Amino acid sequence: MSTALDTLPKIGAPATRALTEAGHPTLRDLAGVPRAELALLHGVGPKALEIIQRALEQHGLSLG
Rank of each mutant, 00 (worst) to 15 (best):
M1P: 04
M1T: 09
S2L: 15
T3G: 15
T3W: 08
A4M: 07
A4I: 04
L5G: 03
L5Q: 14
L5R: 09
D6K: 01
D6S: 05
T7M: 11
T7E: 10
L8C: 08
L8I: 10
L8S: 06
P9V: 10
P9Q: 05
P9L: 09
K10I: 10
K10A: 15
K10F: 03
I11N: 07
I11K: 02
G12S: 14
G12F: 10
A13L: 09
A13Q: 12
P14K: 09
P14M: 05
A15N: 03
A15W: 00
T16V: 13
T16F: 10
R17V: 07
R17C: 14
R17I: 02
A18T: 07
A18I: 13
L19R: 14
E21K: 01
E21G: 00
A22T: 09
H24F: 07
P25K: 05
L27C: 12
L27P: 05
L27V: 02
L27I: 09
L27D: 08
R28H: 11
R28C: 08
D29V: 08
D29S: 10
L30K: 11
L30I: 14
L30D: 01
L30A: 02
A31Q: 10
G32M: 04
V33R: 15
P34H: 13
P34Y: 11
P34L: 07
P34N: 08
P34V: 12
A36R: 15
A36Y: 04
E37V: 12
L38W: 03
L38I: 14
A39L: 04
A39G: 03
L40A: 15
L40C: 13
L40S: 14
L40K: 15
L41V: 08
L41N: 13
H42W: 02
H42N: 13
G43Q: 11
G43D: 14
G43C: 12
G43F: 04
V44K: 05
V44C: 07
G45I: 10
G45K: 08
G45Y: 05
G45N: 11
P46Y: 00
P46T: 08
A48C: 03
L49P: 00
L49T: 03
E50V: 06
E50K: 02
E50I: 07
I51S: 06
I51H: 00
I51L: 08
Q53H: 00
L56M: 03
L56Q: 02
E57Q: 07
Q58P: 12
Q58S: 08
H59L: 09
H59Q: 11
H59E: 12
G60Y: 03
L63E: 05
L63T: 06
L63F: 01
L63D: 06
G64S: 07
